[in-house]
Computed example of a mutant assay.
Amino acid sequence: MRQIKLVVEYDGTGYAGWQLQPNGVSIQETMERALATMLKVPVRLHSSGRTDAGVHARGMVAAFKTDTAVPLRAFSEGLNALLPPDIAVSSAEEVPLEFHPRFDARGKHYRYSIYRGERRSPLARLWAWHVRTPLDLALMREAAELMVGEHDFASFRTAGCAAKTTVRRIDAVDIVEEGDFLRIDVRGSGFLRNMVRMMAGTLVEVGRGRRTPRDVALLLSRPGSTPAGPTAPPHGLCLHEVYY
């Protein structure tokens, strides 16, 4: 028996998210079908987490067990030939059987992209949130710094989050300008449901002058007492890397 670890890149625009869904095609379903076609047996993928409908990934990690002697190259180049253009395996490696993509992960890096151009951009519309109003980056960075560290992020999760604890460690929240684009890079040990999107939405509210860094401090010191900012649209979010 072997276990194969895959690093997957995908455009989540046309999918109902990573996880298998009763209504809608998922990334997981699409990949499992391709693997079953290649190996001639059903395959179950286990991932480092899940992404919602419309969310993208550059470094989703998934793994599966197989008793076939198929060479590693087939799980990248060969599998990519069976996958649609918006999903690709960027690397494949054999790992110990006890490896688990989710439980062995030490941290993740998410990036939220904002397009600040005056006019809409057809090319950016699928992977960046178009925010036309001016943003105060100094205030946003001040608020972002408050999010770093171990905090109770109960105010930064949406309904249906099944996490047993809402305490999470955030290692960095960096806000970087790249021309008309603003990148919010968030690195941490783990995340609640829609946590990064709510962090991004709250930071945009601060940048617009609708909230203050002090409001963010209160959200973290008195979790659940007041709601966080809006949940930013899914298409601006990308899972960049999972750390082990």
Results as ranks from 00 to 15, higher is better:
151 H>R: 07
161 C>R: 02
22 P>G: 09
154 A>N: 12
132 R>S: 13
32 E>P: 10
212 T>P: 00
35 L>Y: 07
191 F>V: 02
104 D>P: 02
181 F>C: 12
218 L>F: 07
230 P>M: 10
212 T>C: 09
1 M>T: 13
2 R>K: 15
24 G>K: 07
70 V>T: 15
30 T>V: 14
161 C>S: 05
226 T>S: 09
158 T>D: 14
187 R>E: 15
136 D>A: 12
81 A>I: 04
176 V>I: 14
242 V>H: 00
57 A>I: 05
73 R>I: 14
20 L>T: 10
28 Q>R: 11
237 L>A: 04
63 A>T: 14
96 P>D: 10
32 E>I: 11
96 P>K: 10
235 H>D: 05
147 M>T: 05
116 R>M: 14
88 A>V: 13
184 I>S: 00
109 H>Q: 12
122 P>M: 11
125 R>T: 11
150 E>G: 08
183 R>S: 14
211 R>G: 03
63 A>L: 06
63 A>P: 05
114 I>L: 12
236 G>Q: 09
117 G>I: 12
185 D>T: 09
151 H>D: 10
20 L>E: 03
223 P>L: 08
92 A>C: 07
14 G>R: 14
187 R>I: 15
12 G>N: 10
21 Q>P: 08
89 V>D: 00
128 A>Q: 00
131 V>F: 04
58 R>A: 10
235 H>V: 10
153 F>M: 12
229 G>L: 08
25 V>D: 02
37 T>P: 02
80 N>A: 03
103 F>S: 06
192 L>F: 06
24 G>T: 08
163 A>G: 06
116 R>S: 10
127 W>N: 07
3 Q>A: 13
40 K>F: 05
152 D>Q: 08
50 R>T: 09
97 L>H: 08
66 T>P: 07
129 W>N: 05
169 R>M: 05
